[in-house]
Design a protein around this nucleic acid. Structure first.
Lengths: 152, 152
DNA sequence: TTATAAATAATAATCATTATCGATTGACAC
DNA sequence: GTGTCAATCGATAATGATTATTATTTATAA
């Protein structure tokens, strides 16, 4: 964790940004909640535990900065808030998501899966892919197990 | 076009909803701008030409209703507004999008492409897929042609 | 026609996000 | 150390998309 923080610090410095205490506290929260998909408000509340004097605007500014540097990805599941997700270090592509329409859980798929599809899109549509967003909506394995869903 | 409108009318009636003049005007705008990805505000302004007395809230309500009935899909490209896209009649799956980071153009991919991927996800993650969202961000064929992009 | 529920227009309210602005901080020159 | 400058910050106002409210209108059917 300290290693990743150190690398993020270097990444910021390479772009002439500083890792201020507020930014560090924000990054730490993201590192500690890597599995979650926190909204800016969520992050704000968690950061306040570490740095009670931090302002909401600073959290927004920091998340925006981290997104710009591709350290986090800003995603939207259609519920009216943006969520922030740490990009896997060294991952060539942004991971995918499984959103359960029963319980609301969001699971991640780290596997690429889109290799062939991207090849087709680049060739047939002459489109140079820089990033992607893939989200499946459906019933997760937990809800799926709880009750038989034979309809449709 | 009238045929599709008629079918949408039937679809509404089957759920005990009426195709009021305001709703009809809204659907007509969507049919006439099938290629576009209009925001609620966009739709509102266009509908006002047909039905000047319509209220913004009615457009929102109508779009929400149409989304609920799966006649349109609500999508979000991360620019702060929801956009509404008519679902292709008879299409098993929602189509995909290519968003150009140069010019902002949004193109559609009607081909499925995800068949194999969905099979893997359903099997390996035990996730019952009901819907999906796939968007590629990159350089479209128009911008791609204008200047050589050899970086990266 | 009259009762009733659905739908509407106008507009107020909400909520996430962004902009503003004065204060603070840290790096560096002197 | 002190001054200067730019980056950053906290507080909060402003914005803008969306939703809720409410009184009114419309459609439907007895």
């Amino acid at each position: 964790m300290e290693k990743r923080l150190e690398r993020i610090k270097k990444h910021l410095h390479s772009q002439s940004y500083k890792l201020t205490p507020q930014r560090e506290a924000t990054v730490r929260v993201l590192l500690e909640h890597e599995e979650d998909h926190l909204s800016a408000e969520d992050v704000y509340l968690l950061v306040k535990d570490k740095a009670p004097e931090i302002g909401l605007a600073t959290v927004y500014r920091t998340l925006e900065l981290l997104a710009e540097l591709k350290i986090v990805d800003k995603i939207n599941f259609g519920d009216g808030v943006s969520r922030f997700d740490l990009r896997q270090e060294g991952a060539a592509h942004f991971h995918h998501h499984l959103v359960c329409i029963e319980c609301g859980a969001v699971d991640e798929i780290q596997e690429d899966l889109l290799g062939d599809v991207e090849e087709i899109v680049e060739r047939d549509w002459n489109f140079k892919i820089k990033d992607h967003r893939l989200t499946f909506h459906g019933i997760c394995h937990r809800c799926h197990g709880n009750k038989e869903t034979n309809n449709e």
